[in-house]
């Protein structure tokens, strides 16, 4: 990844904050920025640490940042990082970008893009002792679905309607999110079966979106991720190749939408 490293301006402000979790997600964003002719300048701020200045994309002043670790937890995890950078930059939109697992191998494909209309924080669950095989029962009733930012979902949906052609599909829906690394189709299916039902079908799952719920109560966030696997035993066999496709397509979809963002069209079609 080619990066210019510059000292930060005094006030690193932005409209949209893009969060990535692992190097492949950041690398894919960097490469797609290059394809779209968008700058990708690495900067350092004494308080905030390192971040990437993407400049003005459409009408959005954009900053990107990468977590110190995968998932929502810990210092530099998505929860802490999103809160720190959103407050510091005054971002009015936060997007978690990268890779996720899909739900239905029969209809979805590796590289298809998921956009969260809702996040289901499945870690909110209750275990009770019971005369079951495991000695306990788990209840997911508290995993209330949380709405994503309507403005972001609408903009991405509008773009998809106007520009349907791509070599990947885009699925809008609920995304399961939690700190667990899920490489088990049995657990994936348990989640789908037991989390509270809602109006939006579950299209995938990932680890960082749950961290965004703490940024603001009024949702300004959205998860945009490519499918890298289906959280099953096959995952380890394909991940080396599939993560690149997933991250590339998610970045491509997001940047395509942002570069074409045109309030004239948006206003005419809404």
């Amino acid at each position: 990844m080619s990066e210019d490293s510059e000292s930060a301006p005094d006030f690193p402000l932005c409209d949209t904050l893009i969060l990535t979790a692992v190097s492949s997600e950041l690398d894919a964003l960097s490469q797609q920025c290059k394809q779209f002719g968008i700058s990708f300048k690495k900067r350092h701020h004494p308080f905030l640490g390192s971040y990437y200045d993407l400049g003005l994309i459409g009408f959005e002043n954009v900053i990107a940042v990468r977590s110190r670790s995968m998932g929502p937890l810990g210092y530099g995890g998505s929860a802490e990082l999103a809160s720190r950078f959103q407050r510091a930059t005054g971002a009015t939109s936060v997007i978690q970008l990268g890779m996720a697992f899909g739900m239905e191998e029969s209809t979805q494909q590796i590289g298809d893009v998921l956009v969260s209309t809702e996040v289901i924080p499945y870690d909110h669950r209750h275990y009770r002792d019971a005369l079951s095989e495991n000695g306990y029962l788990v209840n997911y009733d508290s995993a209330t679905r949380m709405n994503a930012a309507e403005k972001t979902v609408n903009a991405l949906r509008q773009f998809r309607i106007e520009e349907p052609a791509s070599d990947y599909n885009v699925y809008f829906g609920a995304i399961l999110s939690g700190a667990a690394i899920v490489h088990s189709s049995a657990f994936r299916d348990e989640l789908v079966r037991l989390v509270p039902a809602g109006n939006h079908r579950i299209v995938g799952g990932e680890m960082e979106g749950i961290g965004l719920l703490g940024v603001t109560k009024h949702p300004i966030w959205c998860v945009v991720k490519g499918i890298s696997d289906f959280a099953d035993a096959n995952r380890d066999r394909i991940i080396e190749e599939s993560r690149e496709i997933a991250c590339r397509n998610a970045s491509h979809f997001l940047l395509s939408s942002m570069t074409s963002s045109n309030p004239v069209t948006a206003a005419e079609h809404s």
Binding site: D15, T16, G58, F59, E60, N61, T92, S93, E150, K151, T152, N154, A155, S261, P263, A266, A267, S270
Partner: peptide, 12 residues
């Protein structure tokens, strides 16, 4: 209005 015109444009 924010949703109709987009985040960054609305801010400006």
């Amino acid at each position: 209005t924010e949703s109709r015109y987009g985040n960054g444009f609305f801010n400006r």
